[in-house]
């Protein structure tokens, strides 16, 4: 009773004993048993992604207060950019948890930046032209569902990422004698099957790589390198059989 009275001071559990049966903040087996460890994995890494411009509908994104009253933003089809794909490099990450056996799901997302050379074209009253430097931004997010095959110190994974990708392209524009830079955004659903491989560096840490294609985009490819921390040692299983 004394333990429970003092253990939760200021909402932070303070352990009062190091002996089983007298712990107030932990339980027997917390530090070593797989049953007491949530099968959660956190990961982050590098991602290179390509996105086809075909079929994308870009729309200028702007704040009303930054434009004259009644201003109508520009929009155009992705093909008008004059480049078949947009590409970017950046970071991605997320977390997954084992649902049953080695079947997992979770949340995954990332951000990538790139550069592209776009055509000069007119849409409505706007004339758009290439903006130098970093002018492509990708944001992607979704839910991965996958299965891990343990191969000893390595593992092979097949997964599918269900989600969406947002592409933003920055361009110079000219309208009614006014020149500025603005960005237009377009979205696409993502159904990205991936093949991934991991190497265990410790019982909790893996380095890996993946390659994926977006089934909804003929030129939508992605490659990634990942670093992951697995709360449950070897995800509970590293054996071949």
């Amino acid at each position: 009773m004394l333990g429970s009275a003092t253990a939760h001071a200021r909402n932070r559990c303070v352990e009062v004993s190091d002996t089983v049966g007298e712990h107030v903040c932990s339980s027997y087996g917390d530090s070593w048993s797989i049953e007491r460890k949530l099968p959660v994995t956190f990961r982050f890494g590098l991602r290179y992604a390509e996105l086809s411009t075909d079929g994308l509908s870009f729309k200028e994104s702007f704040k009303s207060k930054d434009r004259p009253k009644g201003y109508v933003g520009y929009s155009y089809a992705g093909e008008a950019l004059g480049t078949p794909t947009l590409s970017g490099v950046g970071g991605d990450g997320g977390f997954t948890f084992l649902v049953v056996g080695q079947l997992y799901t979770g949340v995954d997302g990332g951000l990538a930046l790139g550069s592209t050379r776009t055509a000069t074209f007119t849409t409505g009253k706007h004339t758009l032209s290439d903006s130098s430097g970093v002018d492509v931004l990708f944001l992607h997010g979704g839910v991965p569902v996958g299965y891990r095959i343990p191969l000893g110190r390595a593992s092979l994974r097949g997964e599918v990422l269900f989600g969406g990708v947002l592409a933003a392209v920055s361009q110079r524009y000219e309208v009614e004698g006014r020149r500025d830079t603005a960005s237009a955004t377009a979205g696409r659903w993502l159904v990205e099957p991936r093949v991934a491989g991991d190497i265990w560096f410790t019982q909790h840490v893996t380095f890996g790589a993946y390659a994926g294609v977006n089934l909804l985009d003929s030129r939508g490819h992605a490659l990634g390198l990942t670093f992951a921390w697995h709360h449950r040692a070897f995800d509970g299983d590293m054996s071949l059989w």
Partner: peptide, 18 residues
């Protein structure tokens, strides 16, 4: 979908890394 992608993209990356 963009909002979802943006939120989970940025969150996923940061949470995963942290």
């Amino acid at each position: 979908s963009s909002s979802l992608a943006g939120i989970s993209g940025v969150m996923g990356c940061h949470v995963g890394m942290a």
